[in-house]
Design a protein around this nucleic acid. Sequence first.
DNA 1: AAACCTTGTTTCGTCAGATGAAACTAATAC
DNA 2: GTATTAGTTTCATCTGACGAAACAAGGTTT
Lengths: 249, 249
Amino acid sequence: MSEQSKTTVRSVERALDILLCFVDESQLGMMEIAERTKLNKSTVFRLLGTLEAKGFVKRDPQTEKYQLGFRIWELSANLDHSDDPAVLFLPEMERLRDDLDETVSLYIRDGRERIRIQAVESRQAIRRVAPVGARMPLSVGASSKVLMAYADKELLEQVLSDPMWPGGIDRDVYVSQLKQIREDGYAISVEEREAGTAAVSVPIFSRAGRLIAALAVSGPVSRMNVKKMIQFVPRLIQAAEEMGKMVRE
Amino acid sequence: MSEQSKTTVRSVERALDILLCFVDESQLGMMEIAERTKLNKSTVFRLLGTLEAKGFVKRDPQTEKYQLGFRIWELSANLDHSDDPAVLFLPEMERLRDDLDETVSLYIRDGRERIRIQAVESRQAIRRVAPVGARMPLSVGASSKVLMAYADKELLEQVLSDPMWPGGIDRDVYVSQLKQIREDGYAISVEEREAGTAAVSVPIFSRAGRLIAALAVSGPVSRMNVKKMIQFVPRLIQAAEEMGKMVRE
DNA sequence: AAACCTTGTTTCGTCAGATGAAACTAATAC
DNA sequence: GTATTAGTTTCATCTGACGAAACAAGGTTT
């Protein structure tokens, strides 16, 4: 599974996987965790016990289920946000939202998925809502393609050969789309991932040229036709460049 | 060390201990971590590698040191704050600060220490500053004694027999103070833990009678004489009762 | 320049201890 | 009643976590 030097500790990896279950669900029973992580229930029991003893998870007295504990809160309080894109780029994202009056989202790649790590919603009554923390596949959506367009070959192979790759998406078409995106410098999607929504996305590069994230503007198809989205591109690229400069490598 | 059923996994415990190092310090080198945790450096190396692979820590490219990674941020975003005293009690603490115009702090016990999990500072120019997340010994300070006054016998034994117990504090005096606090319903300290500051503290109980936290008002001794602090007590107790009702057990 | 730290990384033999199967309990459904 | 499910404990097996030691890469002192 992993490619480089195997200097990891299995039990710890498993425990961390258990913690990560709580990104999707705030309350989980032991069996649910065992299913999600595909671990033996005895193992889950022991690992959960350890996590609980250290305060990383706790049991809800009502539901008897597990949830994240105060240690996470404690750690996050001391988290250094000074170089966190989600914090760093927020003001620029708000400016972008104010200019375009559509929802602005920021995505990073995580394994074979992407995560929305920050979002600023349009102020209009009809708008794209964009919960922070949401995870999506890398197969569809403007930001997915931006993230993949500048990914290295190895990663692309991995994503394309993922058994979770949706049957309906042709890999060759996808790969040629990525090429187009590298030429254009932006990606557009119309009702690709979600009915009724369209999005334009551009890459954010650090000064050293490393892909940091994808910046997207999305809204209802009624307002976001292709022509309008192309008009957004220069402003989007400008914002992305500003953001890229803020990253210290 | 542990008292009850040993259902914990050592390597995971150690990995979590490493994570907890970052509560005190935002950047740490491998050797520093090895010292703090008293672990073999090979072990630290492996555990850190695992934590890094999963995104729980990352290396600062500048300093080469480790710091908390995006996974903590990801988890904390999904942290359920609905029953977190630090969030739940904040409005009531702000009201208290507005009424008394002194710094209001909220403490919970964690092992043989207490942690300030929330604070609202006085608006006066000279005021007690109270960083959230700070840890203090349970031997001194008004809130320490409140937390210990209602602790069970076993825990009291543990705290009293802690090798870290400061030499200057007489255990018998301490225990009799706890008794007094249970009778009074509040604790006062004047320049006990920190020169120039005084504090009054009261317990917060859930409806089921469980001790949740200690609520304290503190300020410079110039303004906080004993008489004034006693005047504060009814208001403090009222606030603590309000807070206690908010806790669902 | 060599000698000497300090920090981080890799190797490797050993055996503690993490593991999974299975048994068991307790609770809820049917 | 039986069946089902979630959670807990036990235990024999053998993996894989462990620490010592060697090694590499800077940095500092002599």
